[in-house]
Design a protein around this nucleic acid. Structure first.
Lengths: 202, 202
DNA sequence: TCTATTTTGTATCAATCGATACAAAATAGA
DNA sequence: TCTATTTTGTATCGATTGATACAAAATAGA
């Protein structure tokens, strides 16, 4: 009943997310967005109403693709401890693989002026809460397997792991030497109150 | 031999630093800078050559004022342990006092696109290295006072403390609830390998 | 007082910003 | 085939961007 779309929304959001991820909201212009998305601005504004709307959609897309994938692939992995280690180690690995630190769109945005916006803040809160819950769930599984001290305060521990995750992402943009970043990631794992040595840590 | 300056450079950089700190490089326009500095753009460009030049000068000014003050006042305090605790606790306290999280200009900038610039990266490296050295020096004093395990790896520990500092600053922009932030800060201190209880921790 | 030197403001630049009016293009159902 | 509906491109909008040409303003030394 109507003209079909040349690019589906997923494709567009993939491209937009990459752009905002790398450069931030303010530093990304509409002309640059047109090139990356392969659509002229009226077509983009027809679907997303504004640059702000496209950015919010990109944030949600980032959570549903990147964040959710990382949670499923690492933190929810069958072997909880191996997954947790791989989760942190993937950050220096990605920085090495793609020659530039990827950081995290949520962390980047939280430090931009854009974070003052209510809708954006809601997205950021949702995304970071997902990460917290996934870390928490992973730690609970570790505890159930008697790999974590039975009196460990899981909520505090998950909160602190998320804190260190944020710090690692900041460090990855400050210093992209692989060895230094990998050391930092290893230290995060090594200081977990693991009770038994299974060969996965240290 | 020439017309005297209406505002000295320190005043200008104080204002510019506040602006970039709050909003970032890309989101801060020249008209806004004019208002904050109380000078028209030609006078500003006469002193700093470009917006980029003003930003670099602001970064250096931030290191020499904010960062150096925090190191002197907290990390280099006579009582090393109390100073270290106060260093981390000052972040939730400042977020509460000024009703908005201050974060850190160096951390904010490292996640902006601007961080790709070589001159800016050198400033960021200098500032963060200063923090690392101050944390390291504080830990060495703790160890000399037998408050820290004698086999503790000071460099790794200082590196990780800086990592958690970065994480705390990110968290302060994501969630400005004072109690939650204060908990995070307290947890950082509580997990230090302190050997004796002096009343300052736990 | 006059001149050399530096700082500042007026006015404005081309370029780019985010955004839109409008019509052509492309389909599905009648 | 015709029409209703949606998507897309052309062309362009006023506003703002970072930056500058130029002259007035303000001092110190001659």
């Amino acid at each position: 009943m109507a003209r079909p779309r040349q690019q589906d929304t997923k494709q567009l959001l993939d491209a937009a997310t990459q752009l905002f991820w790398r450069q931030g909201f303010a530093a990304t212009g509409t002309r640059e967005i047109e090139l990356a998305l392969g659509l002229k601005s009226p077509a983009i504004y027809h679907r997303f109403h504004s640059k702000h709307g496209l950015f919010c959609a990109s944030l949600r897309h980032y959570i549903e693709s990147v964040i959710d994938w990382r949670i499923r692939h690492y933190l929810d992995a069958e072997d909880a401890l191996t997954g947790l280690c791989a989760f942190f180690e993937s950050i220096p690995q990605n920085a090495k693989r793609f020659q530039q630190p990827s950081s995290c769109l949520l962390v980047n945005t939280s430090l931009e002026r854009a974070s003052a916006d209510e809708e954006i803040q809601a997205c950021l809160h949702e995304g970071t809460h997902k990460i917290f819950l996934a870390l928490r769930s992973n730690l609970l599984r570790l505890q159930a397997q008697h790999l974590l001290a039975p009196n460990a305060k899981i909520d505090q521990l998950a909160d602190n792991l998320q804190l260190q995750l944020f710090g690692l992402l900041v460090s990855s943009r400050l210093n992209n030497e692989h060895h230094s970043l990998a050391d930092k990631a290893r230290h995060i794992i090594a200081t977990l109150p693991i009770t038994a040595t299974t060969g996965a840590n240290e």
